[in-house]
Amino acid sequence: MHDSDERALLRLLQAGDDAAYEEFVRAQTPRMLSVARRFLRNEEDARDAVQDAFVSAFRAIGNFEGGSRIATWLHRIVVNASLMKLRSKRRKPEESIEELLPRWQEDGHAARPAAPWAAEKLVEQDELRKLVQAGIERLPESHREVLLLRDIEELDTQEAAEMLGISTNAVKTRLHRARQALREVIDPALREGT
């Protein structure tokens, strides 16, 4: 969208134009629903999160100053609504990430030294997608959400910290452990010669 179109759309939305709002909802819903589905396993929860997000966005549109794209702004609201939903659903105490992290010998060498991954295993798109998605599912929630925010939704460290109510250092530590754990979980299937 061009800047001038974007500004025109914003003005219409802020003026409460019904047609513009409907068009905006139709245009943005598919992408926003795929964002919510990444956080929430349950389709109904994902749809609720998207709906909550549009309601919040509509309430806040008057204060939106156009510092970012409308779609980017809405994306952040959907991510936040998805996190809220996720938290309202959380019941069982989460497992520790320690078991998924690499193991070390006393002298600081890896218990299982890393090996390259086989190029031919990285081209099977369907298999790879299932493998990686299942790996992300295995992460404890506190680490999965940081990985999703930083590496998938591409929020920066500061934004992720604010959204989760934790320090930027905690975001960095969790992100690094989440990546290490994910690497560990998918490694056996991708190693050369296995």
């Binding site: 890393a114 090996a115 998605q133 990985l147 998938i152 290490q180 998918i186 991708l190």
Partner: peptide, 23 residues
């Protein structure tokens, strides 16, 4: 060498996460 492989596969993990979650 093992740490070279670790570095490469760690970076690949980050790339794959994005690729496999975002269509």
């Amino acid at each position: 060498p093992p740490c070279v492989h670790y570095l490469a596969t760690y970076a690949e993990t980050v790339r794959l996460g994005k690729q496999c979650c975002v269509s």
